[in-house]
Simulated scan of single mutants.
Amino acid sequence: MSSEPVSEPSLVRTGAKAGLAFAGSVIKGGLLGLVLGGGAFIFYVSQLQGPGNTAARAGGVGAILALLTSPSLLVAVLLLLFVGVYVALGVAHGRARAMQHLVAARGEAVAQKLGGAIAGRIEAMPRTHGTLQRAADWLSVDALSKQLAPVLGEGKAVRSVVAFVLNRLPMSEMLAEWQESRAAHGEPVAGEGAVAQDPALRALLARRINETLQDLAAPSRKPLYIALGAHAALLGVGLWLVN
């Protein structure tokens, strides 16, 4: 009971920082969408009346038909879509920033708790003909999230962390290595009598999970640079078409 008052404010502060980081990145993405995406679109549309579009300069129905049957309109539509692209990049970056705060504050504790939960399920897995059975069921995101809920709480953030770790950890290799290690030391493996808690397995899992969480918490600007390059190239092609 004494640990609850201490842990709750920490979780609240961590959640608040993560939420602010997410909101800040989304706002930045929205501003980029309005300034870069919207600005480039408006500038390009203003150039459609340039010397390269004689039919468009004529006005009326002829101008509309000329735009609908030319690549210029396609470029305009694609430029407009970049508004949503920048917003989506802001959302993705915001999620990474939120996870960064979560890992910084609780990464080690999450790694230990999640490593212990996975290790416990590995040790309890049924074994048939030398092979651990139904690993996907025993190490599912739902099962682990429910098991960790009393410690880490419930929510999309916890499920996202668990799912990311399970997708990135080489579970098959680690299971095989663990069984071989226990067999080499003459210790029982899963399904062959009671299996005591293995500190080495827990330490290995905690270390690998912590490394995986560090990758999760490292937001990359590469997608933004790719979007900026593609946006500039598309605008250049559009200007070349209308002039």
Rank of each mutant, 00 (worst) to 15 (best):
V26L: 14
V35M: 08
Q100N: 12
R13Y: 09
T54Q: 14
Y44Q: 01
F22W: 15
A56I: 11
V35A: 08
V75T: 04
V45S: 11
L34F: 14
L80A: 04
L89W: 09
V35Q: 03
G52D: 04
V91M: 07
A40C: 05
V83S: 01
G52W: 04
L73R: 06
L73T: 05
L65R: 13
V77S: 00
P51Q: 13
G24T: 03
I27C: 13
L65Q: 12
A55K: 03
L11Q: 12
A66N: 12
V45A: 14
L48D: 02
G60C: 01
T69G: 08
L11W: 10
G62P: 08
V85S: 02
V35L: 14
G62Q: 15
V75A: 09
R57F: 03
P71K: 12
G60T: 00
K17W: 13
L79Q: 02
G90T: 01
G38L: 07
N53R: 11
V85Q: 05
T54P: 09
S10W: 10
P71F: 09
S70H: 10
P71H: 07
F82S: 05
A56P: 01
V83D: 01
L68K: 07
Q47T: 12
G24L: 07
V87Q: 11
V35I: 15
K17V: 14
S72C: 08
L81V: 09
L31K: 06
T69K: 09
V83P: 00
G52T: 10
G33E: 10
L11N: 07
G38Y: 02
A55E: 09
A98T: 04
V12M: 13
T14P: 03
G94Q: 05
G24S: 13
G90H: 01
I42S: 09
V45F: 10
A16C: 09
F82E: 04
G52P: 03
I64F: 13
S46E: 07
L78I: 15
G94N: 07
V91F: 11
P51T: 11
A55I: 03
L73I: 02
T54D: 12
G30L: 02
Q49H: 08
V61I: 12
Y86D: 01
Y44R: 02
G59V: 00
I42R: 10
G15V: 00
S10T: 10
V75M: 03
G39R: 08
S72A: 14
L73H: 04
V91D: 06
V35H: 06
M99D: 04
L36R: 04
V77I: 08
G15P: 03
V91P: 06
A16R: 14
A92N: 06
L65S: 11
S46R: 07
G38V: 08
V91I: 12
L89A: 07
G62R: 14
I64Y: 13
G24K: 05
R97G: 02
V77D: 00
G19S: 15
G29E: 03
F82G: 00
A18N: 09
G62N: 14
A58P: 01
A96Q: 09
V45W: 11
R95V: 08
K28C: 12
G24V: 00
L67K: 07
R95D: 06
V87H: 12
